[in-house]
């Protein structure tokens, strides 16, 4: 295992005011594998993804993709790097002023300058990959159910065939069956594209289905890393408490009295 990791984070730190959200994150994700990051609400999971995407500027540390530190790149370099990353947002974040097919083909229309007519056909193909009929392409995002919105969001993320895929709580707000369906689609897409994936979630069933490896984030630090299959019996007291949903344990919820 001397291969260089696809994504390598070192000492990533971010604070908002005096609230430290990321406190020196070190994380490696090997090419073609899926990393699941678990952690409670407010543990900094979303901020971690937004830092890698360049939506939030970290205070310190490095983010290397294919060995290149993207924080050291200029604006054009970052935009170039971002073209190879697809992201599925927590609530889909579909553009509600555009029909579904244009949502799916948005990245293609924006960067590769395909003709609109060709884009329509490509969108139909991508929609089929996530199990949606061609006719869905003419609907508006607000006309779709939550599960369908997630599928369209997934289709939009994979349309430009990115090397790296991010999933922000892909199953939150879905029923368990739809959650399993989305997980299945995610695994299929990642395998088919050969992409490297990072998913953040607090749904254990989903974490085991999507991930090859897993890491737990607590108070801005990685407190455990291991194979995703070991999540339920990791031997780490914090992970055990989290995955089994126990109230008592090393993690104390800070509630106001």
């Amino acid at each position: 295992m001397s291969a260089q990791p696809k994504i390598r984070l070192r000492g990533l730190t971010k604070a908002f005011g005096d609230k430290v959200v990321l406190d020196g994150i070190d994380l490696d994700v090997m090419a073609g594998t899926s990393m699941v990051v678990i952690g409670g609400s407010g543990s900094g999971k979303s901020v971690l993804l937004k830092c890698i995407l360049g939506l939030i500027e970290p205070d310190a540390g490095s983010i290397e993709i294919d060995g290149k530190n993207i924080l050291a790149l200029d604006r054009a370099g970052r935009e170039e790097a971002r073209k190879h990353i697809g992201m599925l947002f927590q609530n889909g974040a579909l553009f509600d002023s555009l029909p579904v097919w244009e949502n799916v083909a948005f990245g293609l229309l924006a960067q590769k300058k395909v003709e609109r007519r060709a884009a329509r056909a490509i969108a139909a193909g991508v929609l089929a990959q996530v199990g949606l009929a061609d006719s869905v392409g003419d609907l508006w995002p607000s006309e779709l159910s939550g599960g369908m919105q997630k599928r369209v969001g997934l289709a939009r993320a994979i349309a430009a065939q990115p090397d790296v895929l991010f999933f922000d709580e892909p199953t939150t707000g879905l029923d368990p069956i739809m959650g399993a369906v989305i997980d299945g689609l995610i695994v299929d897409c990642v395998k088919k594209l050969g992409s490297t994936a990072i998913a953040i979630t607090h749904d254990m069933a989903s974490a085991k289905r999507i991930g090859d490896r897993a890491a737990m984030l607590f108070k801005g630090r990685i407190v455990w890393q291991g194979a995703a299959s070991e999540l339920m019996d990791s031997g780490n007291a914090m992970v055990d408490q989290f995955t089994h949903g126990r109230r008592e344990g090393p993690i104390q919820m800070e509630l106001r009295k």
Binding site: K50, L53, G54, L55, E79, R82, K83, I85, G86, M87, F89, Q90, N91, A93, L94, F95, D96, S97, F106, G107, A110, Q111, R156, A160
Partner: peptide, 20 residues
């Protein structure tokens, strides 16, 4: 209202991730 809704529903971040 339109741009504000796009902001709070992550659509503006989504634009950035789609090279726009």
């Amino acid at each position: 209202a339109e741009i504000g809704t796009m902001r709070v529903t992550d659509q503006i971040d989504a634009l950035t991730t789609l090279s726009t």
